[in-house]
Amino acid sequence: MGLFRLTCYAYRKDYHRHIFSHPMACRADVRHENTKRKYNGGETRFFRVENVHRYFMYASWPIIPFFFYDVYVSITYKGFAELSLGSIILLINAIFVTLYTFSCHSLRHVTAGGGAECFGCVFNQSQPRSSARWGGFFRFQSALNRHHEALAWTSLSLLIFVDLYIRALGVHMFPNIILIH
């Protein structure tokens, strides 16, 4: 999961800009005309590893059901159904993590035809309806993908928050608020 996030196209922008300062900013006032500053080669050297982003994505898929399993356990662990604020926070967290994972650029490419030369080409026209559905799926994926960066940051901060919240509950810092008993 961590590797998935590290090679994510949305985070690449942030760490390349802020940690490695390539570029320092989109503005030209930080232009170094006679710079001796060496470029780390973008994704041609060490960061070539970015290219296997999709495998990290595949690896992160099996983790997602556990988020939802946590929600289930948090409702039923006392032996009877009980909805608490914690469960709702866990559910929101699970939804955001799922949306983040499924708005990935690589997923859009691999499944929804970012790699397709065309949707429903003349040569697939035997099934025009399925190609229309495929195109629709691509549109849906693109719409999700547009919010990838926002989802990335929301889900990351949520993850941290939820972790701390559950831990705090565990040490009885404050009582769990029970909504439906």
Partner: peptide, 24 residues
């Protein structure tokens, strides 16, 4: 134009298809 999202990343992914990802 979503230069990065719609042009560069898909092209990078295509390059991955051809050069880094044996399965694809």
């Amino acid at each position: 134009i979503h230069i990065t999202d719609n042009a560069i990343i898909p092209e990078k992914e295509r390059a991955v298809d051809l050069q880094y990802d044996p399965l694809m």
